[in-house]
Simulated scan of single mutants.
Amino acid sequence: MTAQCGMAIPFLSQEVHSAPLPSATVLVLRDGSTGLEVLMVRRHGNAGVLGGVHVFPGGKLDAADGQVAAGALDLTPQACVARLAESALSADEAVALHVAALRETWEEVELVLGMDAWTRSRQQSLEERIGQGQDWAAAMQTEARRIPVSALVPWSRWITPRLPSVSSKRFDTRFFLARLPSGQTARHDGHEATEAVWLSPRDALERFWADDIELAPPQIMSLVALSRFRDVDAALAHAQGRRPPLIEPHPFDRDGCRVICYPGDPEHPVSEPAWQGPTRLTYRNRRFEPDGGLTALLA
């Protein structure tokens, strides 16, 4: 197939100067029969951002996410700040990011991370409390006493560039890793997400390359990074042993094609790579893909 670069999606030619919206997303992991697997959900086709695309559970922060008393968490606010390793981040912001990650995972796939002993009756009680008007954090504290933010392991931080390539909305997203709690099953909500599927990183990239699923650049590059790990323990140990990298994609147009480059690329201002693998994606064949094709993704 001949690569075609034509601008089939409306790339923006002017910078967006609005501040990026704080958000959180979670790569929920489990050990499958052939190794590490990650949970992905397919966003509803009518979604305002990334409709029809397979993503990790997550979303924007709610005001209530930051209105949680320090004693409601199983970590101190200061510990939440320290593990994100961002000098400009306040304790309230760090708490809100952790709480939002847990809340969004519950809302989109009905998983209560960090709770291996979670029962269906407790799930129903949580749902009832929220249905009666309690916010998620308050209802969760009532059911579990402590909100298990320690179940989350910071993985990376992505900031949408001022010249976006996928959406005119900008996001400042913290990515977390988390282990699937024993005894729980992911179920998509049928509204924001229309499918929940467990895939090995390699299978997800192969399905993307075969045009079986759609992936956005942050998901592509996160799967490339995850594909290096044999199991959940290895991925979590790696994440716990290093500072979460800041990923600020640098987009530019070359020969009629939109290119997005990442740390370590010759065109990126940060010379230190954030992961092994490709350092740029180019919009060809109506999607973003690396030079070298599938081989580059899986090398």
Rank of each mutant, 00 (worst) to 15 (best):
A237T: 14
H238I: 07
H238Q: 14
H238G: 00
H238Y: 14
A239C: 12
A239K: 05
Q240E: 14
Q240H: 13
Q240A: 15
Q240W: 06
G241C: 12
G241P: 14
R242T: 08
R242C: 03
R242N: 03
R242M: 07
R242Q: 14
R243Y: 03
R243F: 02
R243G: 00
R243P: 03
P244H: 08
P244A: 08
P244T: 08
P245K: 08
L246I: 12
L246D: 05
I247M: 14
I247T: 13
I247D: 07
I247R: 13
I247L: 15
I247Q: 14
E248A: 11
E248F: 05
E248K: 05
P249W: 12
H250K: 12
H250W: 15
H250A: 10
P251A: 05
P251L: 04
F252W: 05
F252L: 03
F252R: 02
F252N: 01
D253N: 07
D253W: 06
D253K: 10
D253I: 13
D253Q: 12
R254E: 08
R254L: 09
R254F: 01
D255W: 01
D255Y: 01
D255I: 01
G256T: 02
G256L: 05
G256V: 04
C257P: 04
C257N: 03
C257D: 04
R258K: 14
R258S: 12
V259K: 01
V259F: 01
V259W: 01
V259E: 01
V259D: 01
I260R: 13
I260F: 04
I260T: 12
C261Y: 02
P263T: 07
P263D: 01
P263Y: 05
G264M: 07
G264V: 11
D265A: 10
D265S: 09
P266S: 04
P266N: 00
P266A: 06
P266G: 00
E267R: 07
E267N: 03
E267Y: 00
E267H: 04
H268M: 09
H268V: 06
H268Y: 05
H268K: 06
H268C: 07
P269C: 04
P269K: 03
P269E: 04
P269Y: 02
P269V: 07
V270H: 02
V270K: 08
V270L: 10
S271L: 08
S271N: 05
S271P: 00
S271D: 11
S271W: 00
S271M: 08
E272S: 04
E272R: 11
P273F: 07
P273L: 06
P273S: 12
A274M: 00
A274W: 11
W275T: 08
W275Q: 08
Q276D: 11
Q276S: 13
G277D: 10
G277Y: 10
P278L: 10
P278N: 09
P278Q: 09
P278D: 08
P278K: 10
P278R: 10
T279Q: 13
T279K: 14
T279F: 00
T279A: 09
R280I: 00
R280F: 00
L281T: 07
T282L: 14
T282C: 12
T282K: 11
T282E: 14
T282V: 15
T282I: 15
Y283I: 10
R284V: 14
R284Y: 12
R284Q: 15
R284H: 15
R286A: 14
R286V: 11
R287G: 09
F288W: 13
